[in-house]
Amino acid sequence: MKMSTKGRYALEIIVDLAMNSTPERLESLKNIAQRRNLSEKYLERIIKALKQRGLVESVRGAYGGYCLTVPCEDITVKNVLTAVEGELTPVHCLTKESDCGVSCDLCPTRNTWGSMWKTITNTVENITIADILKRVDEINDEP
């Protein structure tokens, strides 16, 4: 399973905001794009989805910008990814009716897909932005 650029960039935006902004010191999307070497236009679309999910807030104006609305300890990787990707199911038939021609009860691969989904979900539900920041600190402290 491959994550789209939207998912990857959304996680980068959230981590960048966690590192570089506070409600008192907002961060511009332009600065995030420059630090991450990403397209500001593309990030605008992604941050809109993050705002709709209540993870990010924005203030307009000369001193405007973005910051997180939720503490890093309370934002999971799953929160971020589902905000821009939707469900993280490897195949649609795990959550919706499928027209593949095989009954779900008789599908020889459905349990395998379900096991993969459970593993992915358990992983992204248990990693917070605070965990990612701890790893960044560890990397920066290494000689």
Score class of each variant (00 low, 15 high):
T69D: 00
L68M: 05
E97G: 04
R110M: 11
L38I: 07
N111I: 07
G101E: 13
R45V: 06
E97T: 08
A62L: 08
T76Q: 06
T123A: 15
R35S: 15
P90V: 15
R35Q: 14
I127Y: 12
V59W: 06
L50I: 06
I129K: 02
I46F: 06
M1K: 13
L29Q: 02
A18P: 04
A10Y: 02
A10Q: 05
E40K: 15
G65Y: 05
V124G: 03
A130C: 07
I129R: 02
W117Q: 13
T95G: 00
N79R: 03
D105P: 00
R8T: 08
A83H: 11
R25T: 09
T119M: 15
D74P: 00
E40N: 15
I13P: 00
R135M: 01
G7F: 11
K51F: 00
A130M: 11
L106N: 13
R35W: 08
I14V: 15
V59G: 05
C100K: 09
A83R: 08
C104D: 13
N111D: 12
T22P: 03
L38W: 02
R8F: 03
E97P: 00
E125V: 00
T112S: 12
V91H: 08
R36E: 14
E97K: 10
M1S: 11
L88I: 08
V80K: 03
E24W: 02
G86A: 12
E27P: 01
R25G: 03
T76C: 09
A130Q: 14
I129Y: 01
Q52G: 07
S103C: 12
N126C: 11
R36A: 14
W117D: 15
I132D: 02
G54C: 11
L26N: 03
C104W: 07
V56L: 10
R36Y: 07
Y63M: 07
P108Q: 00
M3L: 14
K78N: 11
E125F: 00
K48V: 12
C107S: 04
G64V: 03
L68R: 04
R45K: 13
K134F: 02
E27T: 10
D141P: 10
P23S: 12
L88R: 07
S115M: 13
A130E: 13
L68G: 02
C72P: 07
R36N: 15
L81T: 13
T82C: 10
R25V: 09
P90K: 14
N31T: 14
V84R: 09
E73F: 00
R8H: 04
G114M: 08
C67R: 01
E44G: 04
I14G: 01
R60W: 00
L38V: 06
C107Q: 03
N79D: 15
Q34C: 07
E138H: 12
K96H: 09
I47N: 05
T82P: 06
I14A: 02
G101F: 15
E27V: 06
L106A: 12
L50T: 04
T109G: 06
R25E: 13
E40G: 14
V80G: 04
E12M: 03
V102Y: 13
L26Q: 07
P23I: 07
T69F: 01
N122E: 14
T128I: 03
P108Y: 02
D74A: 05
L81K: 10
